[in-house]
Structures are given as C-alpha cells and as structure tokens.
Measured scan of single mutants.
Amino acid sequence: MAAAAAAGAGPEMVRGQVFDVGPRYTNLSYIGEGAYGMVCSAYDNVNKVRVAIKKISPFEHQTYCQRTLREIKILLRFRHENIIGINDIIRAPTIEQMKDVYIVQDLMETDLYKLLKTQHLSNDHICYFLYQILRGLKYIHSANVLHRDLKPSNLLLNTTCDLKICDFGLARVADPDHDHTGFLTEYVATRWYRAPEIMLNSKGYTKSIDIWSVGCILAEMLSNRPIFPGKHYLDQLNHILGILGSPSQEDLNCIINLKARNYLLSLPHKNKVPWNRLFPNADSKALDLLDKMLTFNPHKRIEVEQALAHPYLEQYYDPSDEPIAEAPFKFDMELDDLPKEKLKELIFEETARFQPGYRS
C-alpha cells in the first residue's frame, strides 16, 4: 500500500510507478496490472468513496492506442447498470505532455475469474450472474457493438453480487458484411471463450460470437473449470467437437473457408456428449439454455433477447427493466489503419471533457 500523499506533496508512487492523480484522489492501494497499465484503488475526496484507477501508458504502440481509444469512446457513450462506466479521466493539459491516461471507475471487490478459483456457486448465484451478463449484453448488442472478449476476468463483482462487464478494448461495431482481413492475426481474445466460426472463417462476425462466450462462462460457473481449455488453435476446435459432436452437413455448409471445411470433413465422426453427463448436478433449465448458447452453427445460436426470456431466468426476466441503447454506435473511421500519432490526438480530444474549465 502506498503511503497517503500529504496535501501538495506531488504524485504518489505505487510499486515504483508514478500515479499522478492528486489532489482529488489519494490513499492509493495496488490492485493489479494488465498488459499496459496498473490498477489501484484510491480515495475520492470529492465523492467520499474509494474508486478504481487504471493507469494506461499506450502511446508507444499502435495496438494499445487503438484499444484505449475504443474503450474510452464506447464506455463514455454507454450507460447501463451492468456495464462499468467511466467516472473521470485524468491526463496532462497538453498533448505533448500526455504520456499516461488515468481512467477512474467504480471500485468492484472482485471478478468472476477470482471468485470461481475459490468458491463453488449455488444455482441461485449462477442464475443471477447469468441474468446480469445477458442484461448488459442486450444493451451492448442493441448499440450494434460486439464485445468480443467476454470471459470471467472481464466480469466485475461486488459483495452485493452486482455484476458489471468491463474491458471493451477489443470491441467492434457489428459488421457481418465487412471482410476484416487479418482478423485472426489481430484477434487476441482469450482462445477458450472463442466461437468456432472465428477459427473457421475470417469473413465478418456477428453478435452470436458473444453468446458463445457467455455459454462458455455459464459452463464454467457450473463446474469451476473452463469447458474448452484448448492449448492452441486446432486443439481448441477438437475440444469443442469432442463435446458438441461432429457438425451436420448443414452446419458445414455455413463454413465459407474450404480449407477449414475440408479439415472438419477429414475428422472421424464424434457423438455429442449429453450435458447432464458433463454437469450431473446442474439445473435442467440451465443445461437447456447452455445447449442453445453453445450451438456450433452461429445462425442457430440463441440471441440475447431470447436467452433473457428463457425459463431458467424467469424469476428475473423483465423486458421493461432491460434497457437498450438510445442509438446504434458508430465509429467515424476504422481505427485499425491509423498511425499511433493520430490515435493519440483522438484520445486527447475524447478525454477533453474531463479537463478543468472544459467548454463543449
């Protein structure tokens, strides 16, 4: 834990890192770190609560700039109880001085990944967590956004079992017609939660990839272990087919990539493993919904509104309290091709509203 900075004593240090967030945020305490930044909790002297502050230093890398800009653009436009918001952003007053960006968010005690390492969940908890994931996802999908990296560590939890989806750095506007060349190379989302079509096709992607990830998360809540822990690309596919069985001819016809289709045709026939054999203690309604989410063919996979209306979630289902976005989200430009200098300018502009004396 960093010592509390005395008023006016300059930035606090946390594990050798400068955290320049005073005077409003003090009493910093280390939480963890990701690929390009550290997260601390801090005391907000204005709202009198502890908050989470993520320090991001992305400006050396085009990919990190892209992810940072995506996350900020999306989260500043989203407003939903099951999606983490941005409360404040701290950065230098000029673009030349801006080396880091500090993002202030609600402090959540833990995440689903940490929880599943230590606790076996009751059916009631599984049901409530799944409902909140789908409630947040309904809003995301209504904005025409794909999260693309749903996994237990991106689901934040607090002691009252509130759940918030975080990390929109890989999110995209849904565009089933656009052929994202190089899709697989830039697709760094965790393999275990990846839909089979991501490994088999490169053309376009749809909201059904997020539903697949939610199915993987439900299976993990039922058993405290990942359902498809593939060691590499082909191993991942083999794990999936080992449980779902061989795809039907109709399902194979959806695979545009001939090499991928021929690979699947070359494999020995596998039978589907019954879900109640894998999860003998699970609620039968939970397994019915799991089956509809972990469907090989993305066109037959359940959609988020149908999933919310499934009998497993009937005690929570309330369409009048499951809000959607006001308007579909649009990125003005494809960020993939922009140089990091341009992305830095866009991050600077996007964060201006939090600067003292800002006038829109």
Score class of each variant (00 low, 15 high):
Ala327Pro: 06
Arg135Gly: 02
Asp318Val: 14
Leu252Gly: 07
Ala260Met: 02
Cys65Trp: 02
Tyr312Pro: 04
Arg67Asp: 00
Asn262Leu: 08
Leu137Gly: 05
Glu305Leu: 05
Ser266Pro: 00
Gly357Asp: 15
Ser284His: 07
Ile209Trp: 12
His269Ala: 01
Asp111His: 01
Ile103Tyr: 07
Phe296Met: 07
Lys344His: 06
Gly242Glu: 05
Tyr187Cys: 11
Thr351Leu: 02
Arg79Tyr: 07
Pro311Ser: 13
Lys300Pro: 05
Leu241Lys: 06
Gly22Trp: 02
Glu303Ala: 06
Ala7Asn: 02
Pro226Ser: 12
Asn224Pro: 01
Thr159Ile: 12
His269Glu: 13
Leu150Phe: 09
Lys259Asn: 14
Gln355Tyr: 00
Leu115Trp: 02
Tyr113Phe: 14
Asp106Cys: 00
Leu184Phe: 12
Leu267Thr: 02
Leu313Lys: 04
Asn144Lys: 13
Arg148Asp: 10
Ile324Gly: 07
Thr295Ser: 15
Leu338Lys: 10
Ile56Asn: 15
Ser223Ala: 14
Ala3Leu: 10
Ala309Tyr: 03
Leu170Ala: 07
Ser360Ala: 14
Leu308Cys: 02
Leu76Lys: 03
Leu184Ala: 13
Arg172Met: 07
Val273Thr: 00
Glu33Thr: 00
Ile165Lys: 07
Leu234Pro: 10
Lys259Thr: 05
Arg91Met: 08
Leu115Thr: 01
Ile53Asp: 01
Ser246Gly: 02
Leu252Lys: 08
Thr118His: 05
Asn154Ala: 06
Asn45Cys: 12
Ile302Met: 01
Asp251His: 01
Lys114Asp: 11
Tyr64Leu: 13
Val46Tyr: 02
Asp210Asn: 11
Val14Pro: 13
Pro280Thr: 15
Asp318Ala: 14
Asn238Val: 09
Leu289Arg: 02
Arg67Trp: 12
Pro311Phe: 03
Pro356Glu: 11
Gly16Glu: 12
Ile347Asn: 14
Gln315Ile: 04
Ala52Pro: 03
Glu60His: 00
Leu267Arg: 01
Val49Cys: 06
Cys254Leu: 09
Cys65Gly: 02
Asn276Asp: 13
Phe279Tyr: 14
Met199Thr: 01
Thr63Cys: 13
Pro176Gly: 05
Lys55Gly: 11
Gln306Ala: 04
Asn253Cys: 07
Leu157Gly: 12
Glu349Ile: 01
Ala171Met: 04
Asp167Leu: 00
Ala260Gly: 05
Ala42Asn: 02
Ala327Phe: 00
Phe183Asn: 10
Ile198Met: 08
His120Phe: 05
Ala286Asp: 10
Ile256His: 10
Val104Gln: 11
Val304Leu: 10
Cys216Met: 09
Asn271Ser: 04
Asp167Gly: 06
Ile84Cys: 04
Asp210Ser: 06
Val214Leu: 13
Gln66Phe: 02
Asp337Leu: 06
Phe183Tyr: 15
Ile302Leu: 13
Pro268Asp: 03
Glu220Trp: 06
Ala352Ser: 13
Tyr64Asn: 15
Leu112Met: 14
Tyr187Trp: 05
Trp192Pro: 14
Ser320Val: 10
Pro339Lys: 13
Leu156Asn: 05
Asn82Ile: 15
Asp283Tyr: 15
Lys340His: 08
Glu349Gly: 05
Ile56Lys: 06
Leu28Pro: 09
Arg353Tyr: 12
Glu314Thr: 00
Asn158Asp: 13
Gln306Met: 02
Ile324Arg: 09
Leu218Asp: 10
Tyr358Val: 09
Thr190Tyr: 05
Val21Glu: 15
Leu338Gly: 02
Ala327Gly: 01
Glu96Val: 12
Pro268Lys: 06
Pro229Ile: 05
Gln105Glu: 11
Leu335Met: 13
Cys40Tyr: 06
Ile72Phe: 11
Gly357His: 04
Phe331Tyr: 15
Phe329Trp: 01
Lys259Asp: 02
Glu109Thr: 03
Gln132Arg: 10
Ile140Leu: 14
His310Asp: 02
Leu75Asp: 04
Ser284Met: 11
Gln249Val: 08
His239Ala: 11
Val214Trp: 06
Asn271His: 12
Glu345Asp: 15
Asp175Met: 11
His80Tyr: 09
Ala4Asn: 01
Lys340Ala: 11
His178Phe: 11
Leu121Trp: 09
Cys166Glu: 06
Leu264Asn: 02
Ile211Ser: 13
Ala35Asp: 14
Thr190Leu: 10
Asn201His: 10
Cys166Ile: 11
Ala4Leu: 12
